[in-house]
């Protein structure tokens, strides 16, 4: 019982820690969007191109955050260690 409680608690802490990965994409996407705004300010006629490129770049930058989220999901819902006890 105690072992299971420890595993469950540590898994929850681990899931929380995994979501720290959200910081990186947040900073990166904010930087990208800021630069895109600058670019649109300089060249308003290129708005469409800049926006679509920015969205694509944001999506790629998001990947690491998504990996963290998936680790958190696995720890919370399909935890491989809980079944051992």
């Amino acid at each position: 019982m105690l072992e299971k409680a420890i595993v469950c608690g540590c898994s929850a802490i681990g899931a929380g820690l995994a979501m720290i990965a959200g910081i990186g994409p947040g900073i990166g996407e904010g930087y990208a969007v800021g630069r895109a705004c600058e670019a649109i300010g300089r060249q308003p006629e290129a708005k469409g191109d800049v926006t679509s490129t920015m969205l694509l770049g944001c999506a790629v930058a998001e990947t690491t955050g998504i990996y963290g989220f998936i680790v958190a999901l696995i720890l919370l819902f399909v935890n491989p260690w809980v079944k051992q006890f």
């Binding site: 999506a59 998001e62 990947t63 955050g65 998504i66 990996y67 989220f69 998936i70 999901l73």
Partner: peptide, 15 residues
């Protein structure tokens, strides 16, 4: 990464 990106965005919305 393509699969996880799409899945993660939709699943995180649900969660």
């Amino acid at each position: 990464s393509m699969a996880f990106r799409h899945f993660g965005n939709i699943a995180s919305g649900g969660v």
